[in-house]
Design a protein around this nucleic acid. Structure first.
Length: 504
RNA sequence: GGCGGCGUAGCUCAGUGGUAGAGCAGGGGACUCAUAAGCCCUUGGCCGUAGGUUCGAGUCCUACCGCCGCCA
């Protein structure tokens, strides 16, 4: 039986740095999914947040002359502001410095301890502060961490370990049988390949680290930041303080992640959950990374795209559309100004914006801005295609095929543009066939109504704008996709508000 | 070094045995409601290379070349 509420998450973002386009991409995808589910009338819970513990945070805070908590407050706030600007409609924003998270983490760790899967051991290894993890000799490039170009520290300390190795067979089984579903296939194979080559126990605590949560059964140790972070998925929904909500939402239906954190989410997290006696998430979807003009985006290269700047430049809807239309979900893709310009000018301005514009103008010109309902349909070209579009759109959305879903909508838009040429209302006008024009315009209005509703998860503001310019009665936010029927629109009185998508 | 993926029109990619596709870009045309938009027509591919399986191969197999990912 499907759960009554769809629970989806983004990773929580590390407050060591301000939000960049990659964070924005993940979060926008989650927002689109969440809004889509709401559009279909299903209850949804969308979680995002910030990851705030670890040595690196304490270090950054010091650099800026702040206490760790002040620093976290500041950066966490930046994420919230960015998401507001991008019109992200999350249901809860978890911070790992929240009291409820700390309590939940302690409860979870204690359950792990009770399972007997934790033991004390000695660890000696090279630790990269940048990665917050131990790295192996072979990974080093001339003695330096390949990612951070810094020299790792040699650390020997007593730590608590988690018997990850006990879960090798179980995890392989769960993943192969899609009980724990990993998409796309290439990532699933990657995890399986690595799992089959062997699993080692992992350290789940660190000594001598102040900025973190102490291990309840040995206060001299701090809980490893990755265990701390992963636990957000349950702490945020009441694992410790709201059992009713927790039981309603857990297990998560979808964890959305980037490929850099594949191992943590597909192996460590499920193993921890198994040890803690909790059900596993149903699906983990791994998306790709951005490249910028072919180059990997990174701080060291200084080519990180700032989502705030981009939003100022383009508007949140254009950015949202571009990211989801241009990328194949799951694969890397290249970000370029030229591509943005093409998508904006062609798809948004010429195809959709102009379709609205010409429809509105004709309603104004031929009917003085107010169009009566037309009920004697002579032909059903647009109607039939629109109904098919709705169906295909839903199928694509359910499978997280955003690009394909958008392409489907754009087929309807293209058909509507073509329909105008075929019908040529301006000729009808010369021949005084007013009723025929009314039919054409009514069909266009209906097509635009459906278009607006289908793009709503992607571009909430623009969808609403289309809706209001055409003067439909209901509020777009209140309409469900299942209630959408062709030909139910009554008389409309248009409110043109100018260009929908200005070109650049 | 091991495992895996990719290489199809100028660009981004669909296409898993049966006469090579889409979008964009390029070229031409008719129209005018429109953000000089939209519509119609059109140029363009020995499907990385060489073998093999098959009546028939982007599509299966082998080797090689070139990119990329994960691991050691």
């Amino acid at each position: 039986m499907p759960k009554e509420c769809f629970y989806l998450t983004t990773p929580i973002y590390y407050v060591n740095a301000a939000p960049h386009i990659g964070h924005a991409y993940t979060t926008i995808c989650a927002d689109v999914i969440s809004r889509y589910y709401k559009l279909t009338g299903r209850e949804t819970f969308f979680l995002t947040g910030t990851d705030e513990h670890g040595a690196k945070i304490a270090q950054s805070a010091q650099k800026y002359g702040k206490t760790p908590q002040e620093f976290c407050d500041l950066i966490s706030q930046k994420y919230k502001e960015a998401w507001k600007k991008l019109n992200i409609n999350y249901d809860y924003f978890i911070r790992t410095t929240e009291e409820r998270h700390k309590k939940a983490l302690i409860k979870f760790i204690e359950s792990l301890n009770a399972s007997g899967k934790i033991y004390k051991g000695k660890y000696q290894g090279l630790y990269c502060l940048g990665c917050e993890k131990f790295i192996i000799q072979g990974e080093l490039h001339s003695g330096l961490c390949p990612d951070h170009k810094t020299k790792p520290e040699l650390i020997e300390e007593e730590n608590y370990f988690f018997k990850l190795s006990d879960y090798q067979k179980t995890l392989i089984n769960l993943i192969e049988n899609n009980i724990l579903e990993i998409q796309p296939e290439i990532r699933k194979n990657e995890v399986l390949g690595k799992l089959k080559s062997g699993l080692e126990d992992i350290s789940i605590s660190r000594a001598n680290l102040s900025w973190g949560i102490p291990l309840p059964f040995d206060l001299s140790q701090t809980i490893y930041v990755w265990v701390d972070a992963l636990t957000n998925y349950i702490s945020a929904i009441g694992y410790e303080d709201d059992p009713e909500k927790f039981n309603k939402l857990w297990p998560a239906d979808l964890h959305l992640i980037g490929k850099d954190i594949l191992w943590f989410h597909c192996v460590i997290w499920p193993a921890l959950l198994l040890a803690g006696g909790l059900p596993l998430p149903k699906k983990i979807f791994v998306h790709g990374f951005f490249t910028l003009s072919g180059e990997k985006m990174s701080k060291t290269l200084g080519n990180v795209m700032d989502p705030i700047d981009l939003t100022d430049q383009l508007g949140e809807d254009v950015l949202r559309y571009f990211l989801l239309r241009e990328a194949t979900f799951g694969l890397d893709f290249n970000f370029s100004q030229e591509a943005v310009k093409r998508r904006l000018n062609n798809d948004l301005a010429n195809d959709l914006g102009n379709l609205l514009s010409r429809t509105l103008t004709m309603i104004k010109k031929y009917f003085d801005g107010s169009l009566e309902a037309y009920l004697n349909f002579q032909e059903e070209i647009l109607k039939n295609l629109a109904l098919e579009t709705i169906k295909n759109y839903q199928e694509f959305m359910e499978n997280l095929k955003f690009k394909e879903a958008l392409e489907e909508i754009w087929k309807l838009i293209a058909r509507a543009n073509k329909y105008i040429e075929e019908k040529a209302p301006w000729k009808m006008y010369k021949e005084k066939e007013i009723l025929k024009i009314q039919e054409v315009l009514y069909n266009l209005a209906e097509s635009l109504k459906i278009t607006a509703l289908l793009i709503f998860p992607f571009m909430p503001k623009s969808a609403k704008n289309i809706w209001e310019q055409l003067g439909f009665e209901e509020k777009i936010e209140d309409l469900k996709i299942t209630e959408l029927k062709w030909g139910k629109t009554g008389k409309i009185k248009i409110n043109p508000k100018g260009i929908l998508f200005p070109k650049i």
